[in-house]
Design a protein around this nucleic acid. Sequence first.
DNA 1: GCCTATAAATGGAACGTTCCAATAAATCAA
DNA 2: TTGATTTATTGGAACGTTCCATTTATAGGC
Lengths: 352, 352
Amino acid sequence: MASRAKATIFDIAREAGVSKSTVSLVLQGSGLIRPETAVKVRKAIEDVGYVYNRGAANLRKAHSNVIGMVINDLTNPFFAELAVGMERVFQSAGIVPFIANTAENPVRQEEVLKSLMEQGVAGLIVSPARGTTPGAFRRLEMAGVPVVFAMRRLPESRIPVIAPDNHRGAYLAAAHLIGKGHRRLAFFGGTSDLVVYQERLGGFREACETLGIATRDVLVIEGETSRKGGIACLETALAMAEPPTSALCFNDAVAFGVMLALRKRRLEPGPDFAVVGFDDVVEAEHYMPALTSVAVDTAGLGERAAHVMLKMIQSRTTRAEDHIGAVNLVVRESCGPDRRTRNRPAGTGGAA
Amino acid sequence: MASRAKATIFDIAREAGVSKSTVSLVLQGSGLIRPETAVKVRKAIEDVGYVYNRGAANLRKAHSNVIGMVINDLTNPFFAELAVGMERVFQSAGIVPFIANTAENPVRQEEVLKSLMEQGVAGLIVSPARGTTPGAFRRLEMAGVPVVFAMRRLPESRIPVIAPDNHRGAYLAAAHLIGKGHRRLAFFGGTSDLVVYQERLGGFREACETLGIATRDVLVIEGETSRKGGIACLETALAMAEPPTSALCFNDAVAFGVMLALRKRRLEPGPDFAVVGFDDVVEAEHYMPALTSVAVDTAGLGERAAHVMLKMIQSRTTRAEDHIGAVNLVVRESCGPDRRTRNRPAGTGGAA
DNA sequence: GCCTATAAATGGAACGTTCCAATAAATCAA
DNA sequence: TTGATTTATTGGAACGTTCCATTTATAGGC
């Protein structure tokens, strides 16, 4: 039962009565070998229980066919979905991507990147951790390893980015709220160290300005991008003198938190306080009430990123064009009816 | 900008004016080299932008320090949580695990396992895909690679398993429902090809028998282990002549689906129909109503699995003891008040 | 039969490390 | 000084593949 030393191509060469070179050719599916010989070799491979040593092969080939996906938070279904989208296209290209999680920790990310480089990855798709320093990808660039950013970008970097049109999405969402009659809007969650945050907040602000909301009526509260963060945002917002009546949330997790906190105060998300999410994760549809959210086609962007990566590897380049994915607002129930048809105030005690 | 050929230890040896062997020793942190020499070498490494070639090293060492985690469904937060628990302990052991997703597809799993073996993994933690054939892990065993199953097990296999006490968890849940006065119980979701299913269903059945529920009053409906599956289960259950008044669900996703379906029929989860989940994912607490569920300490089991793996690698064995994790029922709101204090039947059109 | 062309298979060098045995340098005991 | 001991450093072989240049076998043309 205890397997002796690992079998090599020499062992199977002996078994099949051919040379190691022949075995190598069979392994690579070369058309140069006679079919009967190939059969013989393949049988020997099976008999001996040989397993190919890709490390040894890469030593010679310097082209490793492993692709890494570095994800900032695997427990966020949004990123899990992204990963799955990428996997789909890699699978049909016959390659198995390895996923690594950085848990939103730049130090961990550094380790992960180092490890992947040492492993000799052919390319990397990365959703960078919050607080990634500008130099974090220098070594990758020096080594000429193709990298693409997915969903997030770094402030100044020449690495291609695949991301949704955050500005537009936020604009649409804000316009929706304003169209429903809201005049005091908030932007909940996220922190300004994320470029995505700047983009979304930018779109939000532009909509407010364009559509005639006074600056003093737009409230911005930073916070964790989680349910917990959403709860906190709502609490501080409602504690203000003139609380907002609606909010665009940095992402769906924050929005879920906001709705939770509303419920806890016996306020009905929608009629009492309108909330819009961002990303449109699968749960959004199933929530009570169903969450209105900006859909970004996560899996589609993942697929796109994978395709770009494949093309970069194939053409041995480290450059590619950015790709900004279309977004659209999925209107469900979390914004309630038009505000102007009624007048119950949101907030702790304000009046309409 | 275009990096020339990759630097090797020879390059940095030349740069530092030492031999390749010295460089190798420095790389391994050997205490044999004079500190000043080590400093010199490390500087050269930095200057040249050297990246360690682990493939080449493994060729010599035959001990690769990469550990693979093969997960059947990364989009299920339950498994994502498991993965994160494992990562935590590997991280503190200084090793970077690679995650691969099989998407519950045995064929895909086969590819993934093959790829990981070729990569020369030191060990594998696997949550096997549904429908995995008994022979799927034969090659791993032949190669003497340590493997641990997490959460799921295969019908007959000598591979060690880390999993929660499914039988007991289901027993507790069923007992809870019966204690609340329910007399017609259902078990929703899952399929019998999963050992976990057998275990949970077994615990459920045992509780029913022991606590005096007639066999004809326990209903078992197989189904997808997803929200969708839960919806379907509830529909068929309520279509029966004498529908159950409560259900234990195979997992939380099914439970969420059941609650959704209840809402759609204007029935209140809890008062109108009691539902219990299994796994206690984070969302359970945040649902409306909050889901009563069997907590299995997912992350803890992940950590445990990782520790076992580490120990197996260290002691070069392929055997280890199974570990069955404690479970406990977390009672929240989805089972409503005691049933005997009221008497509205659940069902398609019952009235109060 | 001989020469050439094609097809199939092969040996050797290389890839970038590690590890062992060996060397060189420094220190010490006498 | 000499030999023994310790401390630092080094060259060479090996790991399991690929690829190139050859060799050997097979067939074809005359």
